[in-house]
């Protein structure tokens, strides 16, 4: 592994550079194709509303992937991630317009662990609501 951040250079509370990730209906179609997740709640608003959702929602795994970028962009080597978990607390609602939705992700070092590993806690917000809870990554630093 070849993380570009050194363990001794971070401390509890160190903030990672934040990220802003736009998500449109086109993003969802592309993600559906790439991931193989064709659940119609992610592209068909008639279906989505019939099953009780407010509108089409983003794939939770797309939100999880975007949140991870704040970590992998920070360390450089994505292979440095040794654990990553999230709870999907609120859906990212994606309206059928040019704007779509925006996911804002921030992260900070929450704990320094053994073997040059640190735990990073992430926060992901869309439309003013936290869309991920318990969002944590363990990363091995240089």
């Amino acid at each position: 592994m070849a993380a570009k951040i050194a363990y001794e250079d971070v401390e509890v509370g160190t903030e990672l550079p934040a990220g802003t990730f736009p998500v449109t209906r086109a993003t969802l179609v592309q993600y559906a194709g790439a991931s193989g997740d064709f659940n119609p709640i992610h592209w068909n608003e008639t279906f989505a509303t019939q099953v009780g959702l407010p509108d089409v929602i983003a794939h939770g795994m797309l939100t999880m992937a975007e949140a991870a970028r704040v970590v992998t962009d920070w360390v450089g080597d994505p292979g440095a991630v040794v654990e990553y978990g999230v709870r999907f607390t609120k859906p990212v609602v994606v309206p059928n317009d040019d704007q779509g939705a925006v996911i804002e992700v921030s992260g900070k070092v929450a704990a320094k662990l053994e073997d040059n590993r640190v735990r990073v806690d992430l926060t992901a917000v869309s439309a003013g609501q936290k869309v991920l809870g318990m969002s944590r990554a363990v990363v091995r630093l240089a």
Partner: peptide
């Protein structure tokens, strides 16, 4: 990687992946 908009070269460039110590391109964590 394109679908999630992630341009990290470890996902697309075998040479970049090797510099991180991987024998070939690696996949995003998810």
């Amino acid at each position: 990687a394109e679908a999630i908009g992630d341009a990290n070269p470890a996902y697309t460039d075998p040479e970049a992946a090797k510099q991180f110590g991987h024998s070939d391109v690696i996949a995003p964590p998810t």
